[in-house]
Write a protein that binds this DNA or RNA. Sequence first.
DNA 1: CCTTTTGCCTGACTAAAGTCAGATAAAAGA
DNA 2: TCTTTTATCTGACTTTAGTCAGGCAAAAGG
Lengths: 304, 304
Amino acid sequence: MDDGTLSDDDTLSRVRRFNRTVTRRIGALGEDYLGTGRPLGEARLLFEIGKDGATVRDLRERLALDSGYLSRMLRALEAQKLITTGRDPDDGRVRRVTLAARGKRAWAMLDRRSKDMAASLLEPLSPAQRERLLAAMTEIERLFRASAVTIEVVDPFGQESEDCLRAYYTELQERFDEGFDPQSYLAARPDDLVPPSGWLLVARLDGVPIGCGALKIGGSGYGEIKRMWVAKSARGIGVAQRLLDALEKQARQAGVQVVQLDTNRKLVEARGLYARNGYREIPAYNTNPYADHWFEKRLTGSDT
Amino acid sequence: MDDGTLSDDDTLSRVRRFNRTVTRRIGALGEDYLGTGRPLGEARLLFEIGKDGATVRDLRERLALDSGYLSRMLRALEAQKLITTGRDPDDGRVRRVTLAARGKRAWAMLDRRSKDMAASLLEPLSPAQRERLLAAMTEIERLFRASAVTIEVVDPFGQESEDCLRAYYTELQERFDEGFDPQSYLAARPDDLVPPSGWLLVARLDGVPIGCGALKIGGSGYGEIKRMWVAKSARGIGVAQRLLDALEKQARQAGVQVVQLDTNRKLVEARGLYARNGYREIPAYNTNPYADHWFEKRLTGSDT
DNA sequence: CCTTTTGCCTGACTAAAGTCAGATAAAAGA
DNA sequence: TCTTTTATCTGACTTTAGTCAGGCAAAAGG
């Protein structure tokens, strides 16, 4: 439990300090936002509607606003002739909001201000400093994304499971030399992934599935890892590692002593991941036509 | 004017994206702040009062609040028995605010939440990722600080001028082998630094002077740079470079063709700065007892 | 000692932000 | 078809955040 790094007070205060610094800096910009003479709420709303317009439902979700409140603000914007609203052609309940000419101008002004603000942050810096700032920003964003990834057990019959599986198969199809035919593949059936005989984990970023991994319990202390997949857009931030950790933890809890898995020679990153995590290559333990390598790992004392 | 880097749309959108990402992440914390059931303003105030208490004047300054508004909030906290107030022993006009027992508990809770939040950001990351996150945060803070530094012409008879000069002299005293005695030093007199016969520039960070530099106009196209100083706490973020740039710009505008300056052998960074900026070492042009090196630079076509 | 200045407080406002309980109409489901 | 759900709107509120004009007392300056 005592993690050393996490309980380190200094580390935490570093993070808190960063928050303070950045909020102050960005708070100052927020005021600039207001510099348009419009209340912040309206400005944000206007900005969020964007050039292409949006549905009210979408806005409500994106800005996390009370539906009544949003409706009122929209009407205020309408009264100022900044937006026009109309029914959504596909669903008569949904309203579509579009920027009117004045609204487009207001939007452009907000956009300009936002750019100016960003520029004013860079302006006093030397080219070298700018480069370092951008690099650090990119790094922070990546790591914030990484930190926002959650892993959860899901129903293998659910929608998300299906979406992940389809994405997984599509990827295999693209990458395998021999192509990929789900029919001939030794897939785990959804029934095999219902606890306690198996688990399907999904990794999400902002609610959207971006990876999965499954554990199938076999006989006499054996377990098999299947369906390891991470969306291209979310690679390089340690999602696969976390999925693997979670699966192994789950396996341990289920009394599994040896975890096995197979993989294709084209999936190099996967092989690297398994090697890093102490998986040893073993002879084929199944006849999966798409498998070129078979691995196993003996799980030792629980470490959590 | 066309800077290339600054007008680069991609660079700006990078910055804006960072702002969005971070605000969202930190906005989520703001709500956590609220998770205490207290309005944000009160929570911030309570937090700012801190374990040691604070004077009302201090709070007003730190949180940039209207004095009436602050007073009202304090009264609200008092009504909730979170704080107690009393006169400042040194100045009967000033009021001191101290956390009462309940206030201390509330404060501890806010502190806990803030820590938890920071921890929850780190928790999903691997040790290597954590390290990189902290490094990037430190870098961003440094560069934000750098970007927040402003440079302005000030009155050489003013308070800030005096403060800077004293700090400058103290530093010289510490660093020169031979010590430093202002009396025997060939200082620029304040009168020499009043435009248009001279300029005194002060660099500020959050309103606090952290550096200065002066330009003294001599005869026949000559100018001399004096009083170059940057506070220890603000070194390594390019303040001296910016001061030098500003002084040279000022010199150009004043028709100066050659800038001269002297410096002591112990001020190595300064010598490096001048060398980097095209200053050539020349024979002694004065009899300053503390000078070991004399430099000059011929200013060419204006570049701004 | 008298005038200013400083620090804090009060009263009287306002605007922004947000909540909540229905009402209404379209779409989906049984 | 009838019910239920979903998407939005309206009206009636509250809370938060903030401004501004004085007012009073302590301290500082002359």
